[in-house]
Design a binder for these strands. Structure first.
Length: 357
DNA sequence: GATACGTGGGG
DNA sequence: TCCCCAAGTAT
C-alpha cells in the first residue's frame, strides 16, 4: 500500500464504476481487436493473442497508426504459433514505420516463449504475463483484464489522466502512479475488461489531454477537477528535457540497374537490427562528409527527423557506384521492392530525398 | 529512478 | 513552425 502524502488525500466521491460501464455500453469505440460490450455480454471472449498483439502495438502509439499494422500482422500470422515460427527479419519488415523497434524484437521473443514455455497458450494471469518479454505492468494487467476479466487495475496514460482529474491530483503523474493504481484497484468491477477499455476510451475521447468534455462524461458528478472548473490543469506534467540536434550524412548508393545498397544496423541501440542506408555517425556539430569511396557524389537535400530524445539533420548524398567497388557488409535491394525491407521512416525519407521511390 | 527508445497527427 | 503527445518497457 502506498504510504505517500498523496495516499492520504481526501477522496470525497468514489469512482462510479457502473456509470463508467453504462457509458461504455453506449459509446465503446469499434476497433479491429476489440469485442464489443454487447458481444462480451453474450459470452464472446477476445483472442488473447490479438489482445496481446494490439496492446504491444498500442504502447505509446496512436490507435490510428496501429490499425493497419494489426490487420497486416493477423493476416500474415493468425496465431502466436505462426508468429513464433516466422523469422525475426520478417517481423521487423512488417513493423517498420511503427517505431519503438524493441517492441518488435520482444514481440517475437515473447511469441517464442509462449510456444516453448507455455505450450502455445498465453498465461491467464497478469502475474504470469508479466514474466514475458515486452510485457510490463500495464500490458500484463490489460491482457488479463480484457481477455479473462481478471479484476486488476489497468493503468495507462489515459486512465492516469482520468484519475488525476477526478481526484484533482496536483503532483506529477509519475509520482502519483502507485497511489492511482491502488485507488483504481478498489473500484474494479466484475466486468474488469470492459471497465479497463471504458476508462481508456473515456480518456481518449472525453477526458482528452487538451480538452475535457465534462458535459459528456459519466464521471463528471464526482470529478474534483471539473468542480474546480479547469480540468485540463491535471495531470501536472513534469518539465520536458531539452532535445538537442545531431547532424550527419546519409549515402544513397545506386548501381547501374538502380538497385540500392542497404545494410543492417547494429544489434543494440537506436533502430537496432533495422535496415539502413550507409552514413556517417550522428554528432552534435556539423561535419564535412567522409564518403565511403571516391565518386561523383551529388548533394540531394536534407532530412530532418525528430526522435524522442534528439532531433536529427541528415545531409543526403547519392552516387552511382563504380563496378569495382567492394561493398561487403550489406546487400543490393531492388529499388521497386523496398517495401520488403525493414526500413524505418527515417531511411524512407532519406531515399525519397535522393529520388528513390 | 532516470534515461533510451519512433513516429505521425493535431493544435 | 513547433510543441505536445499516444493503450510503456527495459535497463
Amino acid at each position: 500500500m502506498p504510504k505517500t502524502a498523496l495516499a492520504q488525500k481526501p477522496r470525497i466521491s468514489p469512482i462510479d464504476a457502473q456509470a463508467v460501464l453504462a457509458w461504455y455500453d453506449k459509446h465503446a469505440r469499434t476497433l479491429p481487436w476489440r469485442v464489443s460490450p454487447q458481444e462480451r455480454a453474450l459470452g464472446v471472449r477476445p483472442d488473447p493473442y490479438k489482445v496481446w498483439l494490439s496492446e504491444v502495438m498500442l504502447q505509446q502509439t496512436t490507435v490510428a497508426a496501429v490499425q493497419k499494422y494489426f490487420l497486416r500482422f493477423t493476416e500474415l500470422w493468425p496465431t502466436v504459433g505462426d508468429l513464433a515460427a516466422a523469422p525475426l527479419e520478417a517481423v521487423l519488415v512488417e513493423w517498420a514505420g511503427l517505431g519503438y523497434y524493441a517492441r518488435a524484437r520482444n514481440l517475437h521473443a515473447c511469441a517464442q516463449a509462449v510456444v516453448e514455455r507455455h505450450g502455445g497458450e498465453f498465461p491467464r494471469t497478469a502475474e504470469g504475463l508479466l514474466t514475458l518479454p515486452g510485457i510490463g505492468a500495464y500490458t500484463s494487467a490489460a491482457i488479463a483484464a480484457i481477455a479473462d476479466d481478471e479484476r486488476v487495475a489497468v493503468l495507462d496514460g489515459n486512465v492516469e489522466r482520468v484519475l488525476a482529474r477526478y481526484f484533482a491530483v496536483d503532483v506529477p503523474a509519475r509520482e502519483a502512479k502507485e497511489d492511482l493504481r491502488a485507488w483504481l484497484q478498489e473500484t474494479v468491477p466484475e466486468r474488469a475488461g470492459d471497465y479497463a477499455q471504458a476508462l481508456m476510451d473515456l480518456g481518449a475521447t472525453i477526458c482528452a489531454p487538451r480538452t475535457a468534455l465534462c458535459m459528456l462524461c459519466p464521471l463528471q458528478p464526482g470529478c474534483m477537477a471539473a468542480a474546480e472548473g479547469n480540468p485540463e490543469r491535471h495531470p501536472v506534467k513534469a518539465e520536458k528535457a531539452a532535445r538537442p540536434t545531431r547532424h550527419g550524412h546519409a549515402f544513397v548508393i545506386e548501381d547501374k540497374d538502380g538497385d540500392i545498397y542497404l545494410r543492417t544496423r547494429p544489434a543494440k541501440g537506436l533502430l537496432a537490427k533495422m535496415t539502413e542506408t550507409p552514413g556517417s555517425e550522428w554528432v552534435g556539430e556539423k561535419m564535412e562528409p567522409t564518403f565511403p569511396f571516391p565518386g561523383e557524389w551529388r548533394h540531394r537535400g536534407q532530412v530532418v527527423h525528430v526522435f524522442t530524445h534528439f532531433r536529427l539533420e541528415l545531409e543526403v548524398w547519392s552516387v552511382l557506384a563504380p563496378n569495382t567497388e567492394p561493398l561487403v557488409d550489406g546487400w543490393w535491394a531492388d529499388r521497386g521492392e523496398l517495401d520488403g525491407e525493414a526500413l524505418p521512416s527515417l531511411f524512407r525519407k532519406v531515399l525519397a530525398t535522393a529520388g528513390v521511390e
